[in-house]
């Protein structure tokens, strides 16, 4: 029995001693990044006992306004990132959510848009304006990205125009024909061509007892005047779900 207690005491003394003298080699849960190696045996430079690594200790070196712009030594970063800076200004989670100090096998958890405040997350362009392609589709759109894109990557983009409006030979896929340039792609007009002169359309619909002709595709998803849905002449109101253009 005495031998048992001696084993325990000696082991605890040796291990605790090692943890105090060279903690990085004795108890670290994972290697530190190169930038933190200078503090490797000074755990309390980042940690507070029973409080992990509080954000305040990170911010003492990594000043929030400097993240992405200047190094911890105050030197300008070669390729400053306004987006990085902005994300760090608005995000409301602890630093270790995305930057675990020690590389553990669980790895760094990546940034997720869900971590942003809702109003910031909704304004894609504030961070991604420089990523907008210069093609016709994107040039015609306004700020909304979410109807087509998710937050895990620009691709795959999933918007299916066919669900909103079917193209045909009379209605080719030229964005500017229906969508006012520079405005939201949710906005469209069917009165821009000779076939659909506004006064003629109003007259024709009035004969059918239809006065609301603001949302053409609600009743004419293919643009064909005979291919109608939503009741006789569109008088029957469709559900709000269907009404979302």
């Amino acid at each position: 029995m005495r031998r048992t207690w001696i084993s325990l005491t000696l082991t605890v003394a040796a291990a605790a001693g090692a943890a105090l003298v060279f903690p990085y080699h004795a108890i670290t849960p994972g290697r530190l990044s190169a930038g933190h190696l200078a503090q490797r045996d000074d755990c309390l430079s980042c940690h507070t006992l029973l409080d992990g690594a509080p954000d305040a200790k990170c911010a003492a070196c990594h000043r929030p306004g400097d993240v992405g712009v200047r190094t911890t030594k105050g030197e300008p970063i070669a390729g400053p990132s306004a987006r990085t800076r902005r994300v760090h200004e608005v995000i409301r989670v602890g630093c270790d959510r995305c930057h675990p100090g020690h590389a553990t096998r669980a790895g760094s958890r990546r940034f997720e848009h869900a971590l942003l405040p809702a109003d910031v997350a909704a304004g894609c362009a504030a961070c991604h304006a420089d990523e907008r392609p210069k093609d016709a589709i994107h040039a015609a759109g306004a700020a909304e990205c979410t109807p087509c894109h998710g937050t895990s990557g620009w691709k795959p983009a999933t918007f299916e125009h066919e669900k909103a409006f079917r193209f045909d030979r009379h209605h080719p896929s030229r964005c500017a024909d229906c969508h006012p340039p520079g405005r939201s792609l949710k906005e469209y007009t069917c009165t821009g061509c000779h076939e659909h002169a506004l006064d003629r359309l109003e007259r024709k619909h009035r004969k059918e007892g239809i006065t609301n002709i603001d949302r053409c595709r609600r009743c004419h998803p293919s643009g064909d005047e005979d291919d109608t849905i939503g009741g006789e002449g569109g008088r029957g109101e469709r559900s709000r779900e269907d009404d979302r253009d």
């Binding site: 048992t4 084993s7 325990l8 943890a19 108890i27 006992l49 992990g52």
Partner: peptide
């Protein structure tokens, strides 16, 4: 003694983890 050696090491590992845990 082997068990105590194991137990002692676990004890130090757990205490160290709890001390630096949030």
């Amino acid at each position: 003694p082997l068990t105590m050696f194991f137990f002692g090491l676990v004890l130090v590992h757990v205490v160290a983890t709890l001390l630096f845990w949030r």
